[in-house]
């Protein structure tokens, strides 16, 4: 499943990195701009910020760990 091919985990990592960047970016923007709570409950917890950050972290891990060309056993 690996050999010289790109692992599915790399694809997943890339998508999570992009999602994480978009959602965290929105979270930062919302926080900085002091935007209203968009009618969602518990907006004060700023979920986009930390959930986006979590996606970003996971995405980076998988994208780097399974990047094409990296030797794996």
């Amino acid at each position: 499943m690996h050999s010289s091919s790109i692992s599915i985990w790399f694809f997943i990592g890339v998508l999570l990195v992009v999602y994480g960047a978009l959602i965290t970016g929105y979270g930062v923007f919302e926080l900085a701009a002091g935007l209203p709570a968009h009618h969602v409950v518990l907006a004060n917890l700023h979920a986009p910020l930390w959930w986006g950050g979590l996606l970003e972290t996971l995405g980076l891990f998988y994208a780097v760990r399974f990047r094409p060309g990296r030797a794996r056993k």
Binding site: Y19, I23, Y26, G27, E30, V40, V41, A47, P48
Partner: peptide, 12 residues
């Protein structure tokens, strides 16, 4: 989802 998820997260 609509109750808790802000823009971006709702799309997710």
């Amino acid at each position: 989802m609509v109750r808790y998820l802000a823009p971006g997260l709702l799309g997710l």
